[in-house]
Design a protein around this nucleic acid. Structure first.
Lengths: 191, 191, 191, 191
DNA sequence: AATGAATGAGGGTTCATTCAT
DNA sequence: AATGAATGAACCCTCATTCAT
């Protein structure tokens, strides 16, 4: 066959993330995933111990991909504003390339079926950004308020924007997104 | 009995919102709700046609409550900045009074089991705020960018902040919240 | 309704023991039990945590019933021969009253899904008979050979006889059974 | 390779009997057998039509082996007591050589998945012994009671003894086993 | 000949919903 | 009006069997 022949495992992951993003973990049944992935229901269990295992693998894989995007060409030596630009752009880029991943991560990051490992990975992602904010505060580029709160403002704004891009409410291309980055920065910049 | 004797219906709604907020609609079973409400499982069906009906009633009641909070003493004649303050404060107040409601609304507002009516109510809520932003843009108080995008920034930021307050990550009392309101405003104010 | 109205729980147990005796635990499905008991499959789970729980409850209930039969009017002061008679008769009586119970006990007593409690109950049953044999050996009524081995001979013989009665191969009524009791006794009596 | 290289077919049978004896037919999965036999799951289906076919082949092969053991050097001309000795010894020998076979046969001889052929082979085995008992009765060496019942006593006793040997409860070596043979004989001998 | 990935029917179990009490 | 026992459809998962390699 000349069809794109990814592995079944990947087919399953690809089908699952769409459904999890759209319907949530508990609203998605294993047969739904099997149908969407065009595999038998039993096949899913050759690659994943159980449904929870699948969602955790997916969560970690996507979060790692986001993390890699973030760390790629990270401008360690630049100003915090430029680092902020890099972060915003990375997340934006990630959301554009993998339409469902960011929404999936955001809507599942507090669920009780996430393993400790999944939760810690998410925490380390937040921690990474927290450090940038902290340094920005020390350097006087970012206002001095409880760091977590500032993360909340920016994280909430970015994720919501990208949810809207995904929903088609707003357009995810260049001029608007650059302006929205400025908006987010303005929320936390000093002065 | 001298206990607070609200109606069974209210007991059910009160129990359900906590569970829906914490575990999601699909992660919450009807027996769970019945137990938490201290009623028989069958009793729920005397007040609600089915589980979907219950979640829609809850969604609309809570959203209407939020809406009422918003409209109460709304400063129609004031500056957009002052209107923004009112909106921020209203949502904040709502979230403080009813710990689970805002998170419940936000985490369920895109679910497929919401009726058209529920969705339209949510849309009208967003539309109400959109109009404020639009007027602000006309008056030169708010930057001129696609209105929906600005709503997204502010809505995303506020909801995330209040989720963190709920989780105990940040403190929801006065000085910090006032500053965070400024942050949100800075994100969209003109110049 | 004027039908015999035992509890559903008892209906389930009554249906299950027949199936377990005839097809074994693993050869019996929960729907089979539900059909035979004329209850919904879900009803079984109102009374038993899971299938393993059901089989253990059944095992212990039946073994306790056998034990009670054994202890009822037990001739503590009589000769070992008379005690042997009582034991044989008790097991025989038990097997006649509850056609499937003895075969069920015997065919499941070594299964891995039995809980420690079930196993210990069975051990205590065997131990009870062992003590009789031991005393018989001390009194010179029973030959001196490893006690467990003698138990094996008699237990194996009795159970096999009663399996055959159950299968219709032999008749379980008085004259024959008395003679078979003598056979079993002759196997272990002194001289 | 210098390893004992029996056929795959034999590897499968050897693995299967251990599992069937320990876990029962329904408690044993085909992948379990494949793993234990160190063959692919599919390979089993090159040698056996399906799982039922495998268990029937095994049942018949083992029963034939037992039968052969029994017929080897059978003392046709000797006294019934000597024939009894031969039978007891043959079964004992068989059980010592092939630890799981006798238990497998006994625990599966009434199962519904046995083919008519398997059942008839088992019946013919019992019938063979029955004839010995019958002649013994005619010759006045064995008590006159329903033949099947006497078979039950002796068969049940022997099988139970050998199960206990297998379980390690009693020792299967000479002095004890000879005494147990006497026990069994005493159960059915005339006078 | 041999494999083991793939399948889907059917297993044990849960749960939204009904209904006799 | 209120209950919770009862139900059976549908859940997650297993496993006998097939088949491309």
């Amino acid at each position: 066959m000349t069809e794109t022949k990814k592995s079944k495992r990947q087919d399953i992951l690809d089908a699952a993330i769409v459904l999890f993003a759209e319907r949530g973990y508990n609203g998605t049944t294993v047969p739904m995933i099997a149908d969407a992935a065009k595999v038998g229901a039993g096949t899913i269990y050759r690659y994943f111990d159980h449904k929870e295992s699948l969602v955790n693998v997916l969560f970690q894989e996507k979060l790692n991909a986001l993390f890699e995007q973030l760390l790629k060409d990270y401008p360690t030596e630049s100003s915090i504003r430029e680092q902020f630009h890099h972060i915003f752009e990375s997340i934006h880029h990630f959301a554009m390339e993998d339409t469902h991943a960011l929404h999936f991560i955001d809507s599942h990051c507090n669920e009780i079926f996430l393993t400790k490992e999944s939760q810690e990975l998410f925490d380390s992602f937040i921690e990474y950004i927290s450090n940038v904010v902290r340094v920005g505060q020390e350097r006087g580029e970012i206002i001095v308020l409880q760091t977590e709160a500032l993360i909340g403002v920016v994280y909430g704004a970015i994720v919501q924007i990208l949810k809207m891009v995904r929903a088609g409410t707003i357009d995810g291309s260049s001029p608007l997104m650059d302006n929205l980055e400025d908006c987010c920065w303005n929320a936390i910049k000093a002065n």
